[in-house]
Simulated assay, not measured.
Amino acid sequence: MSAHLVYDNAPLGSVIRYFDSTPKPPSRFRKKLSAWEGRNGTGRLVKKEPPRSRATYSSPAYFNLHEGDFGEGGTVVVSVRRTYSVESDLHFQIVERPSIGMIRVLKDLGDSPELLHLARDREAAERWLANNPYSRAYLEEVSADEVGADIIEGRSAA
Rank of each mutant, 00 (worst) to 15 (best):
W36S: 01
R39H: 05
L12H: 08
W36T: 00
D89S: 09
Q93G: 13
G110C: 07
V6D: 08
R120V: 09
L106R: 13
P113S: 00
A119T: 01
K47M: 15
A10L: 06
S88W: 01
R127T: 11
A35V: 02
V142R: 01
K48Y: 01
S34Y: 03
V95L: 11
K107P: 04
D20Q: 11
S14P: 13
R54D: 10
P26S: 08
Q93F: 12
T75R: 15
D69Y: 03
S53A: 14
L129P: 01
V105C: 12
R81L: 15
G41F: 04
S27Q: 12
G68K: 07
G71V: 00
G110P: 04
S79W: 12
H4Q: 15
Y62K: 09
D121M: 02
G38S: 08
A157Q: 12
N131P: 03
E114Y: 11
S2M: 08
G148K: 10
A55H: 06
R52G: 12
L106Y: 09
V46L: 11
N9T: 12
A137Y: 04
L118M: 05
S2C: 09
L12F: 05
E49A: 11
S53P: 06
E96S: 07
Q93C: 15
L139E: 02
G74L: 15
A144H: 10
T83R: 15
